[in-house]
Design a protein around this nucleic acid. Structure first.
Lengths: 223, 223
DNA sequence: GCGCATAATACTGTATCCATAATTATAGAA
DNA sequence: TTCTATAATTATGGATACAGTATTATGCGC
């Protein structure tokens, strides 16, 4: 009698596949074996195929007619296209958020930011990532534009295809923290233009760090 | 032996449904009867359902579990969310296009613009719409950012759910033409910032016109 | 006469089955 | 030994059949 979550099977499957793709358990370029997967999940191919259609619309997989389904391989060009776009979009979010945020909203953001500071100091990478994600998402929600939110989330899904995405933060934790402070300060000051710029630059600096990593492969461990 | 276009059935079906939705032959809110449609197209429900999954990802229909599929009803709020977003995105396109355009590209744009002028003068609405569409699309392509293009096209699909979309141009043909002249002039002058602003304003003025139409229903005919 | 409950109908969601096309392997010829 | 052609195997795409749930209509009780 599960009244909530009347979610269809194909949606469940789509979500599970998303997680596996983001975790690079299914790396870019991988061929997706429908029969094996269906068997593995204990379902028929029908809902699985419907799930793949959804993932294809999201750009996570590519459906080649009569050739099967492959996890999308994202190019350096794609990364270079998406980051400036995200910088513009998230920048806009920050500006709108400042304009619309109530006192309580800012307090909430501040609390998330402090979690970020704390987890950075204590070296809790996992918590840091989570708080970082929350911080950005909360700002996007505060902007109050459903479609702006949708577009950003769609693009972020594509970015997650690249495992570098997370490395771009990990390698520059202190730097990232500084940028977050600037964003937070602008929001608290109610300065929309400054918040927009700070967020915009934050994203672009992330892209630059990522480009540096890309040039010199192993970032910290044995060279 | 059709070597090209090995397009799957579900894609064909998706495209036909898109056209019917955009033409308001299937108005927003309509329930989509899978069995009837499948019979009508002479296909089984399987590819039809796959097509519906794709349209749902595009936001053109809504899939309510165990309740069926309905054409998305777009709200005034959605319109107000999307237009400023499009203004920003198409503005960016214009700026990027100016930076990247070669001599020949500008000539091509100019040719399209002249078709626009001519069809406006001769009152050929259909041609005008087509040239208008081409003008915007060419600029977006010149920007050379695959993801920027994708995002804009996705949002435009949603806008097309509202039949007002076209009215917002028709009611202010001369005005729209003026704005296009400003855009074209900035591009020819190689002024990226000015092109961005002109394109941005062009979109926002379209939104305003649309809002005015919305307030006073019949725009030209008997009041 | 109105409201609620139960039953019947119809549609969605899933599974199984079949046909077609692609890929791979094997055999034969150069 | 290598390349090509043909055949076989395998996977994708589509159709049909079945099960479960929601909605609606009808009948009974208050």
């Amino acid at each position: 009698m599960n009244r909530i979550a009347p979610t269809a099977l194909y949606q469940e499957v789509a979500e599970r596949l998303r997680q596996r793709i983001f975790a690079h358990e299914l790396p870019p370029g991988t061929w997706i074996d429908e029969q094996k997967l269906a068997e593995q999940y204990g379902i028929s191919r029908t809902p699985l195929r419907e799930a793949l259609k959804v993932l294809a619309s999201e750009g996570l997989v590519e459906l080649k007619p009569r050739r099967g389904c492959y996890v999308t391989e994202i190019s350096a060009q794609d990364i270079n296209d998406i980051f400036p776009l995200m910088a513009m979009l998230e920048g806009r979010c920050a500006a709108e958020a400042v304009k619309r945020a109530k006192r309580a909203d800012i307090e909430e953001l501040k609390a998330i930011h402090e979690t970020l500071e704390r987890s950075a100091q204590e070296g809790k990478i996992e918590t840091f990532f989570e708080a970082n994600q929350q911080f950005h998402q909360r700002i996007q929600e505060l902007a109050g534009n459903r479609w702006l939110l949708t577009v950003i989330q769609d693009l972020r899904k594509v970015l997650k295809l690249s495992r570098m995405h997370s490395l771009s933060i990990e390698g520059r934790l202190q730097q990232s923290l500084e940028e977050h402070r600037a964003i937070m300060a602008a929001i608290q000051a109610g300065d929309a233009a400054q918040a927009e710029k700070a967020m915009h630059d934050h994203l672009l600096l992330g892209q630059e760090a990522l480009a540096r990593i890309h040039d010199s492969p192993p970032p910290a461990k044995a060279a």
